[in-house]
Simulated scan of single mutants.
Amino acid sequence: MEFIDIPHDIKVFGHQVLTFPNGVGEAFDAIVERVEGGFSRPFYGLARMEGNSVIYMAAAIEKFSEEGKQLGYEEYVIQKGKYAAITITDWHSKLSSLPGIFSQLMKMEGLDPEHWAVEWYKDDDEMVCMLRMKDEVFN
């Protein structure tokens, strides 16, 4: 486990996967097809609990202001701060292990439950699972 400092808010856009966990791949494929440069930019999976359900958003980093709006997507913000993180390589073959990885991260003291759980798809091989820490943990 490591800590990653995100120095500024990250603007992303995307849409909710209503059939989570089914349909996640298709949701990302749809965004990749619509954005300039395809998978040449970082993509994100954002998740949080609402009651007993997982709300999951497939998202891409915004390359220019209001790109998501122009493409008809919702806009979200991954807030700056420190994140507990676990990096995974060859993530395509390890998707079934993601719940266990996030369970491991959720055992950390000082997590901020008000923020999204984040899957940062850096490229086609490397992905980072992240949970935001409370600001006072590092101050």
Score class of each variant (00 low, 15 high):
Met57Phe: 14
Tyr44Ile: 05
Gly38Lys: 03
Ala59Arg: 02
Ile86Asp: 01
Val128Ala: 13
Asp112His: 01
Ala60Ser: 12
Met133Cys: 08
Glu50Arg: 15
Val77Asp: 00
Gln104Lys: 12
Ser53His: 15
Met1Thr: 13
Thr19Asp: 10
Lys107Gly: 13
Asp125Pro: 10
Ser96Met: 00
Val32Glu: 12
Tyr73Asn: 11
His115Leu: 00
Ala85Val: 00
Glu36Met: 07
Ser40Cys: 11
Glu109Asn: 12
Arg132His: 09
Tyr44Cys: 05
Ser40Phe: 06
Thr19Trp: 04
Met127Gln: 09
Lys107His: 12
Leu111Ile: 02
Arg132Gln: 08
Ala85Cys: 03
Val128Lys: 12
Leu111Asp: 04
His92Gly: 07
Val54Cys: 11
Met130Asn: 13
Lys69Asp: 14
Pro21Trp: 01
Leu105Lys: 05
Met130Gln: 11
Ala84Trp: 03
Met57Asn: 15
Ala30Ile: 06
Pro42Lys: 11
Asp135Phe: 04
Phe20Ser: 10
Arg34Tyr: 10
Leu18Ser: 14
Glu36Asn: 13
Gly81His: 03
Val77Asn: 03
Thr89Tyr: 04
Leu131Thr: 10
Lys82His: 12
Gln16Ile: 08
Gly25Ser: 04
Tyr56Ile: 02
Ser97Asp: 09
Glu74Trp: 11
Glu75Asp: 11
Gln16Glu: 09
Pro113Asn: 06
Val118Arg: 03
Ile10Asn: 03
Ser65Gln: 15
Met133Ala: 07
Asn22Ala: 11
Lys80Asn: 10
Met49Val: 12
Ala58Asp: 01
Leu131Trp: 06
Glu109Gln: 11
Met106Trp: 04
Ala85Ile: 01
Glu67Asp: 10
Pro21Gly: 09
Pro7Leu: 00
Ile6Ala: 09
Asn52Val: 12
Ser53Asp: 15
Asp135Cys: 04
Lys11Cys: 05
Ile10Trp: 03
Phe64Arg: 14
Asp124Tyr: 12
Gly38Ser: 00
Phe43Arg: 09
Leu71Trp: 03
His15Ile: 05
Glu74Asn: 15
Lys63Ile: 05
Asn52His: 14
Ala85Arg: 04
Met49Pro: 14
Pro7Tyr: 02
Trp91His: 06
Val128Arg: 13
Phe20Lys: 08
Met49Arg: 15
Gly51Glu: 07
Ala60Asp: 04
Leu98Phe: 14
Lys69Phe: 12
Tyr76Asp: 01
Glu26Leu: 09
Ala47Asp: 09
Lys82Pro: 08
Ile4Trp: 08
Val137Arg: 08
